[in-house]
Design a protein around this nucleic acid. Sequence first.
RNA 1: GGAGAGAUGGCCGAGUGGUCGAAGGCGCUCCCCUGCUAAGGGAGUAUGCGGGCUUAAACCUGCAUCGAGGGUUCGAAUCCCUCUCUCUCCGCCA
Length: 423
Amino acid sequence: MLDVQLLRNDLEGTAQRLKTRGFDLDLRRFQELEQERKGVQMHTQELQAKRNQSSKQIGIAKSKGEDVSAIMAEVANLGDELKTAEEKLAVIQSYLNDLLMNIPNLPHESVPIGKSETDNVEVRRVGTPRSFDFPVKDHVDVGEGLKQLDFETAVKITGARFSLMKGPLARMHRALAQFMLDVHTQAHGYTEVYVPFLVNADSMRGTGQFPKFQDDQFHVCADDLYLIPTAEVPVTNIVRDVIVALEDLPLKFVSHTPCFRREAGSYGRDTRGMIRQHQFEKVELVQIVQPEQSYAALEALLGHAETILKQLELPYRVMALCSGDMGFSAAKTYDIEVWLPAQNTYREISSCSNFEAFQARRMQARYRNGKNKPELAHTLNGSGLAVGRTLVAILENYQNADGSVTIPAVLRPYMGGTEMLSA
RNA sequence: GGAGAGAUGGCCGAGUGGUCGAAGGCGCUCCCCUGCUAAGGGAGUAUGCGGGCUUAAACCUGCAUCGAGGGUUCGAAUCCCUCUCUCUCCGCCA
């Protein structure tokens, strides 16, 4: 959520900046609502003040045993007027709130201006894609060839966009998560957290999934809870309605969770394989920091995610997302894309964002600044990394001519020393 | 799932219709005092939202908030209803 003051003080400028990410702010509607709000709110508060004063007088008079009928008559018809005013104010405020909750974050000044994916800017490229002297198979063919990846059974059990792994491949999937957690806790100073995978609507609102992306979530109706689309939701909401002591910042959390996404609206895309699943696992990095430090923190967090790819020796590139391609809540986002030889392209494997105070304002996540005043914190997160897609990248990049797959060196200690996946 | 008890400020804890945003204590901050330390004395110490003032902050002022939402009343922490959560006992269970 943006600061309302920003809209009140510089509506035009804010609208301009929002336009760069393809959002059209309804200026007239905001102005009308805001003007009405101001009038009604002042009127309401005036009436409330009047009522409070009279009630106090009645109390004083009664305690002295005086006659109160005169004052009572004075406030007699205040009630209805006040009730009307309060109801009107509530309606206006809910309209304003709806408007506000659906406005995306402002892009940071360093964000490249652009309309779509094609305007994203490559920041760096690390590692060289291997050249194969045999026809490259995609991860589906590799995994099914090993008889360790089975989509057919997953479809039978549940439906499309689910997968089933067996044997050493299932173990490698688990090993990947363990490896990532160990690196981030031991080398990067993150605290591991285990969190609920079902959350309430308040948490979804806090990180910005609600109200706009309600259709993308799995809803457990009987209990009115939602399956998390990312660990970002439960982990960032740790600080909802909390005022963190200055000396406790930055907070750095890492969490390994399953993620559930309905993928509404992406029916035709990535239907083959485990690139786009309703259920996948992710190791997520989350930081809560002071505003002055959030951009340095973003670079650091990005580096932490990159470390995993470097250690797995997977070629990747870092993209700075343009204004038009960023997510709703982000002020700045870097995507890390891993090389997939079968697709002959780089595909997203991590997304690292600084949300500035956008999420913090929604969830009242604050810290005490140098003057001991509560101030909104900045929140960041990034995948470090998406486990399923990392597995895909390994299957494709480490495949051998005979259909086997070499296990990256750093994973072997997690695989009982095994060096190869083979049928 | 059944029965009962409870939810008040950073913490403990008082408060069953009236000058209560809330006694008292602890903690914390500042000041005084004692050569230092300990003890003692004084003052201050919630958050959100509006309005005024301002470049801004500070400040002044109004409103709201005693788990959440609704109701009764001129007036609700206090009475009524619904919900949530916590604790105890029983049942069940990994």
